[in-house]
Design a protein around this nucleic acid. Structure first.
Lengths: 211, 211
DNA sequence: TTTAAAATCGAACTAGTGTTAGAAAAAATG
DNA sequence: CATTTTTTCTAACACTAGTTCGATTTTAAA
């Protein structure tokens, strides 16, 4: 028990890394403890010294992934230059979300990919973190709307789901090198705020009603 | 072998329905043949009279799901009123995609949800249908861009992925009754074409460059 | 170096899976 | 009704998974 981390902590981290990576690649049910153990340079039985069950391991991977993206987006809001527009704020949040999801974080991408296939009780215990993250986005968007940076005649909850969908779905197709995360964020924010249509009738976008 | 469907065909369809439903709910690996059989009012062994393996069953579910959404979107383009704008065309495609995905079609939603977790060889054999569907969307969007209904300074492939993501992700959160598919399509198209931002600097959207 | 604790191994167990094949039942045919 | 074919059942098989636990090794303390 020195100032550094014990051997147990190192192994634990190695196992979690291996689990996150394998879960992300193969999904939850298809991932075997033998695979995780091999990726962590261990025997399957040894995992039980650190984790009580496969579900416990899953739960920790999910939690870490959600906390990381939450913190990343939260930080992106705190480190904004003073006087940033709401568009800048949202743009920063989008980029933070994408970066965490796509850049070297198997935890968050595993979370996003396998959330729909996890056992009921694990989901129940994890859902709080999900809700908290959703609430963060809700606040960001609502503030923008209140400040008249976003139209008021729209269903902001629906917009949030469409936005998160566009971002989250990238775990299914994103390949490093083909498109930069900045380009993705640029396109996403352009669509969100201005759209990519060329108005043939030449009326301003505020004229259209939706609800 | 009458003009109607044989008993075998009926059972086959019942099994496929049960499989699609269960795959969509639980994912591929977590779904057991016992569950599928129970949902189809049969014993697990009896499935093998109709299908050679679990993978074969999966493959057919995937193919049916992809064909259905492909046909739905294709039809939406053929049944457009003459003189429809490109925005109308895309709006029709969006609605067709969402309707197939969310309204009583376990096949398409199963496809979208579990595609990331299927065995390698099944994916390889299924990928053609996926590509064909992507190509359909590529054509629709490219035509709109060529007709100057969409900006030319954007990465249309990226826009397509973001759009499909926003739509496909709805299988993870959509609940019938809370939001209508029309409202979803409205919001999606409004975002895509006009955006939902209120331009504080009051310059037109065409002034912004992205690439 | 000795000794106790921490960490891992290795082999076994149980449960549940996809799959098979012969028996049984249902349907169709003559 | 008799008989053949189609369809389903039943029971078993082979295999793999998650899990357990005593033996063994590694690490740290005295």
């Amino acid at each position: 028990m020195t100032t550094e981390q014990s051997k147990s902590d190192i192994s634990r981290a190695r196992i979690l890394d291996a689990a996150a990576k394998t879960f992300r690649q193969k999904g939850y049910a298809a991932t075997t403890l033998i695979e995780i153990a091999r990726a962590a340079d261990m025997q399957a039985g040894s995992l039980y010294y650190h984790f009580g069950s496969k579900d416990e391991l899953l739960e920790e991977v999910l939690d870490i992934g959600m906390r990381r993206v939450h913190e990343a987006v939260e930080e992106s809001q705190e480190h904004l230059p003073p006087g940033s527009s709401h568009r800048d704020r949202i743009r920063a949040a989008v980029e933070a979300h994408l970066t965490t999801l796509l850049k070297l974080d198997d935890y968050t991408s595993a979370n996003i990919r396998i959330f729909g296939q996890i056992p009921e009780d694990v989901r129940r215990r994890h859902i709080k973190l999900r809700d908290a993250y959703a609430e963060l986005w809700r606040r960001i968007l609502a503030k923008a709307q209140k400040s008249r940076a976003l139209r008021s005649d729209i269903d902001l909850g629906l917009v949030r789901m469409l936005l998160m969908g566009a971002l989250n779905w990238s775990v299914e197709w994103y390949q490093p090198g083909r498109t930069s995360i900045q380009t993705m964020a640029d396109h996403m924010c352009l669509m969100l705020f201005s759209g990519i249509g060329i108005d043939e009738t030449a009326r301003s976008s505020e004229d259209e009603t939706i609800a």
